[in-house]
């Protein structure tokens, strides 16, 4: 009866539909062919090429890449103190930026997730997303204007009579420099600014999922607001913080624009990659350097997974 009841049953599209209905796994694999072909060749292929290049070395006399597998480049990377300094400096900056971003993001995320309602909530989400998607370069450029010696920040501090404090801060070893726009402190501020939305959104998502009655329960059981915060809110927000920190950590590790536009003389991993492949023409060393953040991020992801970061992604 089934076949007779439907005149459309013989149409080829329907026949194909039925064919794939019976073989749903086949349909899935067929759908995956184009994206996997693309991804497999272009992206994964490139990553393997990168890995391969890092096991080549440059001939010091002819300055050409010798396509023979060797550990020479990694040895160069790991034994020269200057290179290790770069790795250390970049990692320190990434960790500092991650912590600062979490601290600054929390009150914003907390407010938009728990207090803002309706239109106000929508406003907050747009207000966080817009700067996140606004042109990366333009934002970096804006900070160059703000941090410049004659720029807006100096002017503001001057107007407040705090220019002495700024000068003292810039004299501090390790973070200072001739002006904010050429100091580690300035770079740190720019990094925190750039990646802040990537921290706010996952933390807000995690806090949105904390039922309000959980906090009522805590208060009901006699916890002071500060106790509720430390014992209930923060542990529940941690997966969001971990998820956000993956972005802040990874983005800081790989960035080379910010250290070259706003920054101190010390090199960062990204700058080294950029410079080695460019002016130095040493692709193997650039490749080896870019493997460092992959390894660091791998370690970081393993730690974040333990903290439950992927549940909040």
């Amino acid at each position: 009866m089934a076949a007779a009841a439907f005149a459309t049953a013989s149409r080829p599209l329907r026949a194909a539909s039925t064919f794939f209905f019976r073989r749903q796994a086949l349909a899935v694999y067929l759908l995956l062919v184009p994206p996997l072909l693309w991804f497999g060749t272009v992206y994964l292929g490139s990553l393997f090429a990168l890995l391969a290049q890092s096991f080549y070395a440059i001939d010091e006399f002819t300055a050409t890449v010798v396509p023979r597998l060797t550990l020479k480049t990694y040895a160069q990377l790991l034994t020269q103190p200057a290179n290790l300094d770069i790795v250390l400096r970049t990692s320190e900056m990434a960790i500092a930026v991650t912590i600062a971003a979490a601290v600054v993001a929390f009150p914003i995320a907390n407010y938009m997730a728990r207090y803002a309602r309706g239109r106000m909530k929508a406003f907050f989400y747009v207000a966080v997303m817009l700067p996140m998607w606004t042109s990366y370069l333009v934002k970096v450029y804006a900070w160059r204007l703000i941090l410049a010696k004659e720029g807006i920040l100096s002017w503001c501090l001057g107007a407040l009579g705090l220019d002495g404090a700024l000068a003292a801060l810039l004299r501090a070893p390790g973070i200072g420099g001739p002006s904010l726009s050429s100091s580690y402190l300035g770079m740190f501020i720019v990094f925190v600014y750039m990646w802040l939305p990537y921290m706010i959104l996952p933390v807000a998502a995690a806090l949105e999922r904390v039922p309000a009655n959980l906090l009522s329960a805590s208060a009901d059981l006699g916890a002071r607001p500060s106790q509720t915060f430390w014992r209930v809110m923060l542990p529940l927000a941690m997966p969001g913080v971990a998820a956000g920190s993956i972005f802040t950590f990874s983005l800081t590790l790989g960035d080379y624009i910010i250290p070259s536009v706003v920054g101190a003389p010390g090199y960062f991993i990204g700058m080294m990659v950029y410079q080695q492949q460019g002016t130095a023409g040493n692709i193997p060393l650039a490749a080896a350097f870019s493997v460092v953040p992959i390894v660091l991020i791998g370690i970081y992801l393993a730690l974040a997974r333990r903290a439950g970061a992927f549940d909040a992604l």
């Binding site: 009866m1 089934a2 009841a5 439907f6 039925t18």
Partner: peptide, 23 residues
């Protein structure tokens, strides 16, 4: 769809028939 055995509607085996061809 069944992994084993048979489902019949009105006496006809529909074990491999998609929903849109069942009355």
């Amino acid at each position: 769809l069944p992994d084993g055995g048979q489902v019949r509607l009105d006496g006809i085996d529909v074990s491999a028939t998609p929903p849109y061809e069942r009355n």
